[in-house]
Write a protein that binds this DNA or RNA. Structure first.
Length: 316
RNA sequence: CAUCACUACAUCGA
C-alpha cells in the first residue's frame, strides 16, 4: 500500500485526479486495503482542485468502509471546506465532531480553523480560536502568525498586524519570507512606502530569502506609489538573486510608467521585456500605443504598431 | 511527497 500511496500522493499533487482515482480503485481491485493515509491523500487531491464535493464523498466512503479518519484527515477536510467558501458551519461542525470522536486537535487543526474565520473576515472569532489554541498548550507557529498578519493587514487593521508581528518575534518565533510578504503587502495597501522599504531592507538584514513572490509584492507597491527608482532597484535585486522578472510585472512596470507619462521609460521597459526573453502581449502594446498617441510622436506610434504586427499580434 | 499561511495587471471609444 505504501507504493500505491506514494503514487496517489504525487498524482494528487499534480492535479491528475482521474488517474489518482484509478490507482486508488485499482489498489482495492488488487485486494490491498487502503489505509487512512491513502484515503486522506485522495481527499487532499480533490480539495486542491476545488472539488470539495468529491473530497467529501471520499470522506464518507472511507467511513462506510470502516476506516477511521484521523486528525490529519479531519484537517484536510476542514481545509477543503474552507476553500470552497461558505463552508464555515461545516468547518465548525467538523471541529466538534472530531473532538466527540476522541481526537485531539493539533496545531494544524487550529490553524485551519483560524484560517476559516479569517477567510470570511471574522477576525474576532479567529482571535478567540488563537486564545483557545494557546490554552490548549499549542504555541502559535509561523503559519498561524502569518495568516493573522495577513488577515489584519487585508482589513486595514495595521496596528493589529504589527502587534502580532512583534508578538511573534518576542515569543521566539522567527518570521519567514511568507510573513514578511504579508506585512509588505499590508503596508502597500495603506500607501506606507517608507515602512515597506524599511521592512524590505530588514528582510535582507536578517537573512530572510526573498522569492519572486516577495519581489512581485514590492514591485507592485513601488509602482503604485510611482517610486520608480526603487522599483528599478528591485528589478536589479531580482537579477542578483539569479531570478528573472515575471513578464506580468514588467508589463505592469510599463503600465505604471505610462500612467505617470514617462514615455521614454515605458519604451525602455518594452526593450527590457524582450531582452529578458518575455514576449510583450497585445495588452502591453495597447497601453504603449495609448500613451504615445496622447503624449508621444507619430513616429513612435507607427513604430509600435509595426512591432506589434511583427510580433504576430492581431490588433483589436 | 497524507493536512495549514503570503502577490499583481490595464488601455481606446460614446
Amino acid at each position: 500500500e505504501h507504493n500505491y500511496l506514494t503514487i496517489i500522493g504525487i498524482l494528487s499533487r499534480d492535479g491528475k485526479l482521474a488517474l489518482a482515482r484509478e490507482i486508488f480503485d485499482g489498489m482495492k481491485g488488487a485486494h490491498v486495503v487502503p489505509s487512512v493515509l491513502s484515503y486522506t491523500a485522495l481527499i487532499c487531491g480533490y480539495a486542491k482542485q476545488g472539488l470539495v464535493k468529491k473530497a467529501l464523498e471520499v470522506f464518507n466512503l472511507m467511513r462506510s468502509e470502516g476506516c477511521n479518519p484521523n486528525i490529519v484527515t479531519y484537517n484536510t477536510v476542514i481545509h477543503a471546506c474552507t476553500k470552497s467558501g461558505g463552508g464555515l458551519e461545516k468547518v465548525v461542525e467538523l471541529f466538534e465532531e472530531l473532538q466527540s470522536k476522541g481526537l485531539k486537535p493539533d496545531d494544524i487543526t487550529y490553524n485551519c480553523l483560524i484560517n476559516a474565520y479569517t477567510r470570511e473576515n471574522i477576525l474576532e472569532k479567529a482571535s478567540l480560536v488563537l486564545d483557545a489554541m494557546k490554552k490548549d498548550r499549542y504555541l502559535p507557529n509561523v503559519v498561524t502568525y502569518t495568516g493573522l498578519v495577513n488577515a489584519y493587514g487585508k482589513t486595514g487593521q495595521l496596528d493589529k498586524a504589527e502587534e502580532l508581528f512583534e508578538e511573534m518575534k518576542r515569543s521566539g518565533c522567527a518570521p519567514n519570507t511568507w510573513t514578511y510578504n504579508a506585512l509588505l503587502k499590508a503596508y502597500g495597501n495603506e500607501g506606507l512606502y517608507e515602512k515597506a522599504s524599511d521592512l524590505y531592507k530588514e528582510m535582507e538584514c536578517v537573512g530572510c530569502v526573498s522569492t519572486l513572490y516577495t519581489f512581485n509584492t514590492v514591485l507592485d507597491l513601488y509602482e503604485r506609489g510611482e517610486l520608480f527608482v526603487e522599483a528599478e532597484n528591485v528589478l536589479l535585486d531580482i537579477q542578483k538573486n539569479g531570478l528573472s522578472p515575471d513578464s506580468g510585472y514588467l508589463q505592469y512596470l510599463i503600465y505604471s510608467y505610462s500612467k505617470a507619462d514617462h514615455i521614454g521609460k515605458s519604451l525602455e521597459g518594452l526593450e527590457q521585456m524582450t531582452s529578458h526573453g518575455c514576449k510583450p502581449d497585445l495588452w502591453t502594446y495597447n497601453i504603449l500605443l495609448d500613451t504615445t498617441a496622447n503624449h508621444g510622436s507619430t513616429a513612435e506610434v507607427t513604430q509600435l504598431f509595426n512591432d506589434l504586427l511583427e510580433a504576430g499580434h492581431r490588433p483589436n
